[in-house]
Simulated scan of single mutants.
Amino acid sequence: MAIIQSQLIQFDDKIRLRRFDENKELREKRDIILGKLRGRFEALRKEEKLDVPTFEHFNQGSYEMGTGIHPEKGDYDIDVGLAFNCAKTKYLNPVDLKILVDDALEGHTLLGSEVRRSCVTVRYQKEGELAFHVDLAIYTYDNPDSPTRRMFIAKGKRGSGENDRHWEESEPRKLTDWVAGRFVDEEQQRQFLRVIRALKRWKTKKFATDGQNAPSGIGLTVAAGQWFKPQVTVDPFKSTTTTIDDLKAMRNLVDTMVSHFTPTSTKADGSTLYRLAVTLPVAPGTDIFTKMTEGQMTTFRERLTQLRDCLDQVKNEVDIVEACKRMQDQFGDEFPVPEKDSTGRKAGPAIVSSAVSA
């Protein structure tokens, strides 16, 4: 049996988006945007006597959760929440507040900003091509002065009708805390995050031509948060020696996900359609995959099944080079394949120190 734990760690090092050094430029752009918004809103209050509420900002999404990966096409992003200190009743049309933000950033970059359904996106370019973007999610409260206040995110685009715009209860910081606190043991938590990042790269590889048909990254993250079982074992006789098996942990998670799909209907050709429900653990508690069609969900299940079968083949492969080639087929060329001369064809033991990076 080929042991590829070291290659899985190398793979994670390649795809993992670090939140500090590598994202310095993004953080700088974020801070400039926040400064411009605060300055513009203050000018509106003083010069035009408009009652523009103040806001607090916070990082959210995969950047803050530590589940971010390098985008294959170079479009890096950072998700920022803007929590405005007002009641949502101040803006009966939630798009009005998003437009206020968008207008304040007019001309800020050559590519400009755009009011999208769940955020305001500010795009930047380098050498004439899209390089990265900042997504600003807009929030208010039911009652900003209440100690039990609830947060709501603005949904809708410019020109959205009443049926296509609304305030939706949301708890992004609680979701981040939920992901961060899945496992008390640090080694188990690091493995958990590595497997999520690997599955997100698998998604970009296997759904490269599917666009919006692909399962969302947050859906994969929450599914892992619900069903992931760590494969980290400490030798009771050698407390500093830890056996870590990311391959087994990933295989078991994928198999569990496949088992949770339920048949929904049968097509004319006799094939079965399936759905997978993954519920947000915080408000609004909705099914993350609800917008995927049965056909899309069935394709998702088929590709997960193919991944599971591949991981089984990798586990049973005696040649580490061949095992890693199989992994490349699922995860892309970033997965390392050792030279045969350096492997002796078979791998060493799956022993990794507790200092494995997250």
Rank of each mutant, 00 (worst) to 15 (best):
A2P: 15
A2F: 14
D12M: 09
D13C: 02
K14R: 12
I15P: 06
I15H: 07
R19Q: 06
E22H: 08
L26P: 08
K29N: 05
K36A: 12
F41P: 10
D51T: 12
V52K: 03
V52D: 10
F55T: 11
G61P: 06
Y63I: 00
G66Q: 06
G68D: 04
H70M: 12
K73A: 04
K73T: 01
Y76T: 05
D79K: 08
L82A: 03
A83M: 15
A83F: 15
F84H: 05
P94Y: 00
V95S: 02
L97C: 02
I99D: 02
L100N: 04
V101W: 07
D102C: 09
E106G: 07
G107P: 05
H108S: 09
L110C: 04
V115P: 10
R116I: 05
R116V: 03
S118R: 15
S118I: 10
T121D: 10
Y124S: 00
E127K: 11
F132V: 02
P144G: 00
P144F: 13
T148A: 02
M151V: 09
K157V: 11
G161S: 10
N163Y: 11
W167T: 06
P172G: 01
R173I: 08
K174G: 00
K174L: 01
R182N: 06
E186T: 14
E187A: 14
E187Y: 03
Q188S: 08
Q188R: 07
F192V: 07
F192I: 10
L193E: 05
L193D: 01
A198V: 07
K200G: 01
K200Y: 05
K205Q: 14
K205T: 13
D210T: 09
D210E: 10
A214R: 13
S216Q: 08
L220I: 13
T221Y: 11
W227A: 04
F228G: 00
Q231Y: 08
T233L: 15
S239E: 15
T241C: 02
I244W: 04
D246S: 12
K248I: 08
A249G: 11
M250V: 06
L253C: 00
L253T: 00
P263E: 11
T264A: 13
T266M: 12
D269V: 02
S271K: 10
T272F: 01
R275P: 00
P284D: 03
I288H: 02
K291A: 09
K291Y: 14
M292F: 10
L304D: 00
Q306G: 05
L307M: 07
L307V: 04
D309G: 01
C310I: 11
C310V: 12
D312R: 13
Q313T: 14
K315M: 10
K315A: 13
D319P: 14
D319K: 15
D319R: 15
E322K: 15
E322Y: 11
C324V: 03
K325A: 08
Q328M: 09
D329K: 15
G332K: 08
D333K: 15
P336I: 03
P338G: 07
K340P: 02
S342T: 15
T343N: 05
R345F: 13
A350F: 10
A350C: 07
V356K: 03
